[in-house]
Design a binder for these strands. Structure first.
Lengths: 247, 247
DNA sequence: CGCGTGATTGAAATTTATCAAATCGCGTGG
DNA sequence: CCACGCGATTTGATAAATTTCAATCACGCG
């Protein structure tokens, strides 16, 4: 956590919207009390840099609201998005000094922060937090590996279809996916999509229009996408029929 | 763990070559005793399938010796290597029924196996194992994300250089990297390299000969590579000067 | 000695990136 | 209210990188 945040406050954990999914998901009331006492809320405006690779991190945090992106770059500016942080996702790595990636707020972001040292101590005392952190790390690992398949082997069209289908699955209830004309709002710009998919902006744009021409999607303004038939979109992802999800 | 293994035996943990790096690294002697009682050694010959994505896994295991590869594939046979398993690496995921990836032995492999249920129970009772598992998962996550940068943004030449430099760093002591004419043995075939780097066999082959023509490497038989100047190779990886490692 | 697998090389095709220009959306100031 | 300008997006033409298809080569082994 490098950059200054604009505000700092605290609310009670019992009202916390990410209570059941964040690192604290498995905590008992007394453990929650302890967390409550040492946490600090901070907010970052959209666009603000939350962490810079290689710089000192003295905080860890959960995302309470908003979206942030995790990126890595090489010398000449090429950058790859490595993860998307949504509410309940965790930032920071116990037992490491420097931030391993760059993190930038996409929308305004609210963070539930802990100073790193006390948090590390707390991990040892509170196995529930460590258990949950392990679960979350393994889920992220699965997601990262799915993405490796996409980046290493999928065509531009398949990448776009995969992204759209990912967003659909995250945004909609499973039963809603059977309906016709599902509408989603892209949470990120074309540039961010390109960085996510390992493509250029132009290729992203072209593949979107091509999918539209083929009737797989309809484009509705800059950020809106309407999917007439989700199954048809899924068929374009290149994945096996299960859509990458294990039964 | 799906496939049948050829042999099954047990040796004492105190002689275990991966004792200090595997999931049991942080265990006290009494904890080790407990592990010792419930572990089973198994071996797989080179080429054998160790796990198949989607199939039931009733074992978790550490790699004691040998090398295995973790892959994911899509419908038409395109496959992406998602990880390389070396001695001390862990196979299996607590709290999940089905294997999330395919795993294949590259060389003969010796595994230190635990039945999944008892191991899961043991995780709760032995925080040292869980701590270590978390560390290992986070390290793997970092590795997966580095690889995402490679797959999404690097050129074929940079990918090859990155792989060679990765193997160098794994195989040699840091001080040996300063020497001239470092020799490494590629642990995997051209096809496996291609699947690792998200390229075709032919591109791998061409880039290797091109790097050789440019004097960055010398090719020494099918599997041997001699690197006259490691720094020069590192400069071809596209990474910042730190070579992707955080201080 | 010939066979087979894995690796290399070559030529053509395809995909994606790059460079350049046009368009769109939208808030601002006149 | 409307023209202006800016950033983001789309579109077009061309170039570059990588894949694909097809041969050839190298080498270990029966």
């Amino acid at each position: 956590m490098t950059a200054a945040q604009s505000t700092s406050f605290r609310i009670d954990c019992s009202y916390c919207p990410i209570r059941h999914r964040a690192v604290c998901a498995k905590c008992e009331p007394d453990e929650l009390d302890l967390l409550n006492r040492i946490k600090i809320y901070k907010t970052c405006p959209a666009g603000q840099v939350i962490a810079i690779r290689g710089e000192q991190m003295d905080m860890v945090a959960s995302i309470v609201s908003g979206t942030a992106m995790v990126t890595r770059s090489i010398t000449d500016g090429r950058t790859q998005m490595i993860g998307l942080l949504l509410p309940s996702d965790f930032i920071g790595r116990p037992g490491r000094e420097a931030a391993p990636y760059d993190i930038t707020a996409i929308t305004d972001v609210t963070l539930c922060c802990f100073r790193k040292r006390p948090f590390e101590q707390l991990l040892l005392d509170m196995p529930h937090v460590q258990e949950r952190l392990l679960e979350m790390a393994l889920d992220e690992l699965d997601a990262a590996r799915d993405w490796m398949l996409l980046l290493g082997r999928k065509t531009a069209r398949e990448r776009i279809a995969s992204l759209l289908s990912l967003i659909l699955r995250r945004a909609k209830l499973p039963e809603a996916l059977a309906e016709r004309d599902c509408r989603i709002e892209l949470p990120i710009s074309r540039e961010a999509i390109a960085n996510y998919l390992g493509l250029t902006i132009e290729t992203v744009s072209r593949q979107l229009t091509r999918l539209a021409k083929d009737g797989i999607i309809r484009i509705d303004g800059k950020r809106g996408i309407i999917v007439p038939d989700v199954a048809e979109l899924m068929a374009e992802t290149g994945d096996d029929s299960d859509g990458g999800v294990i039964a």
